[in-house]
């Protein structure tokens, strides 16, 4: 009797949250899919059925091709950069040096800052102006006689996205460092000792024992960072505004929907983004929850 009362009460207490998620996540996704299959262009909703028209138009849209290329470049540089840098930092910090806490805090603090702040500051650090108007990192390189490093940053043709990814690495590599550090701390010391006694070099220990043990963490980092890079928006806006060479799906979606009022096209971009994120995240959630049981 009492148990039943508690059961009902718990369902009543949790249902507003479940309902909110069902509506605001799943209901709205369904609604977006419907919009993406319509002909809605203009301020007033128009749900005339248009089938896959918007999706097909995107697949043959040169701007969308640029978006895909940019996303691939950004994802590659950002994900690989953050994982490699994060791993190296974690290994260095795992050696039990004095002042480890200070270094950890320094590597991690950019995580507390918004993409907008990061973008505004990096916009000036990556100022591409040349000659007497040179400033930012280019000026620093120039005065340190590192001229070969002077470059046009995000205004570089095709590879400009890689410069945006550098700012993103600055912001997020502390996060992979924290993931790896937690993983390294969980590896028992006896394992390394045993390998050392067997005559393994430090490099071999990392290569053959530690790295394989950290595979689940590398996978998490890959998926979390990968899905973040599909969504990148604020950072680009703050560094470069909305310009075609640095366009990504999230910015295209924004412009075509809210500036161009082409709602059905914008919804289609949103759904394509969702599908690409879901391909990464759904297996990840299933795997994580299974590992928990």
């Amino acid at each position: 009797m009492n148990k039943n009362k508690d059961r009902y009460l718990s369902i009543i207490l949790i249902s507003p949250s479940i309902l909110a998620v069902l509506i605001f996540v799943y209901g709205f996704i369904g609604w977006s899919i419907r919009v993406s299959l319509s002909d809605w262009k203009g301020l007033n909703p128009n749900y005339t059925w248009a089938g896959s028209k918007n999706y097909l138009a995107l697949f043959s849209d040169p701007r969308f091709h640029v978006d895909i290329r940019n996303t691939l470049i950004f994802t590659g540089v950002f994900v690989i950069g953050s994982i490699v840098l994060g791993f190296i930092l974690a290994v260095m910090l795992d050696q039990g040096l004095k002042g480890e806490g200070i270094f950890r805090s320094i590597f991690l603090f950019p995580m507390a800052i918004s993409y907008i702040v990061t973008g505004v500051v990096w916009r000036w650090l990556m100022n591409p102006a040349e000659g007497s108007r040179m400033s930012g990192l280019n000026l620093l390189f120039d005065s340190l006689n590192l001229d070969f490093l002077v470059n046009r940053w995000h205004t570089t043709p095709i590879w400009g996205m890689a410069a945006i990814a550098i700012a993103a690495i600055w912001q997020m590599s502390g996060y992979t460092m924290a993931l790896y550090l937690a993983g390294l701390r969980a590896i028992p010391h006896e394992l390394r000792e045993a390998a050392r006694i067997d005559g393994a070099s430090e490099f071999q220990i990392y290569r053959r024992i530690i790295l394989p043990l950290l595979t689940p963490i590398s996978l998490s980092a890959l998926i979390i960072l990968g899905h973040m890079s599909l969504k990148v928006f604020d950072l680009i806006i703050a560094i470069a505004g909305k310009q075609l060479p640095l366009d990504v799906p999230a910015i295209y979606m924004w412009q075509t929907t809210f500036d161009g009022l082409f709602y059905s096209r914008g919804a289609a971009i949103g759904i394509l983004l969702l599908i690409s994120v879901a391909v990464l995240i759904i297996p990840y959630i299933r795997y994580t929850l299974k590992a928990e049981d």
């Binding site: 609604w31 977006s32 979606m253 709602y263 914008g266 949103g270 759904i271």
Partner: peptide
């Protein structure tokens, strides 16, 4: 899953 969705996919509704 709601934690990971790109908000562009729910923005219009």
């Amino acid at each position: 899953f709601g934690m990971f969705i790109p908000y562009q996919s729910i923005l219009i509704p």
